[in-house]
Amino acid sequence: MNENKNYVFPFVLLGIVLVVCFGINISLGSVNIPLKDSLSIVFGNTAEKESWEYIIWNYRLPKAITAMLVGAGLSLSGLLMQTLFRNPLAGPFVLGISSGASLGAAILIMGSSLFSSIVAFEFINSVSLAIASSVGSIIVLIAVMIVASKIKDTMALLIIGLMFGSITAAVVSILSYFTNAEKLQQYIYWSFGSVGNLSWSQILLLTVIIGIAILISLLTLKSLNAFLLGENYAKSMGVHIKKSRYLIIIATGLLAGGATAFAGPVAFIGLAVPHLTRQIFSTTDHRVLMPAVLLYGAILLLICDTLAQVPSSAYVLPLNAITAIIGAPVVIWLLVRKRKMVF
């Protein structure tokens, strides 16, 4: 905790890896643009072909930036959840928070066709989708917190989180049953997860949401470290438990809700990245973990997005499938190697 110098090297390394992944991500795709040209376009130079410039500026650059924001956001929310619930398996997905976001999105997309006579749901745009998802995730998070305050057993809490997930999934099925095909397709595409197709203004909004959430998380840095010893010890060390809890919940809701709203429910990043980060940095100090998790998450989602793109082909696989295919084995590997998940 004292020797911050030890962490300079891994941070520099992560920074370099991030830049490399970013470069690869924008140069690969259905049209191959050489890495050199891609980077020179990003830095404002004109390229050999005008179409390349168009692809980079209007398609690939926004996508890469979204991938970084979403990856960083989900990973940080996973870290916050794991510390708050003192449970290594916690994450936006396991505790039903992403399901809450899905429910919010589902009600907005599909509910609109059901209730269109009552309210004019003409505003299914990025902003309303983001609000609906964030509200959905915060509601589920608060429900989980209320239960958490009554139940000390963290395993029971996890199961309850899964139950919340099932309930929201059930409500989504009911909504899907009654909705029309067009809306259903819109929702299913949203649920595949994708970091593409965001306009620059949408990216700005996502940046603001994630930025605010990171600022809130920074305020809780000290209490997060104290929470590692449990709430009683944290309280005895002068941590304002209620205030910190609320701040952490709000930050998580914004991170998971915001990321899910724009990119759909992206699985496993939130759970796996904090564990990977702890392996590399071998510390529990959130002052180191927080920036590391942000970098790591951005890198991992860039890689997943590059793979989902299926280089040199016109296919784009659901991002959600790729993150699960990469994320799940990582978690299994960690468990097998360590025998237990220390956090």
């Binding site: 905790m1 004292n2 003192r86 000290k222 470290n225 104290a226 590692l228 010893l229 449990g230 010890y233 060390m237 002068g238 941590v239 702890r278 510390t283 529990t284 100090d285 220390v342 956090f343």
Partner: peptide, 17 residues
């Protein structure tokens, strides 16, 4: 304590909070 991944030094340092 829920997290035993802390080092002795890290844990004792938390006392200064």
């Amino acid at each position: 304590i829920p997290s035993k991944n802390l080092t002795v030094l890290e844990l004792i340092s938390l006392g200064r909070q």
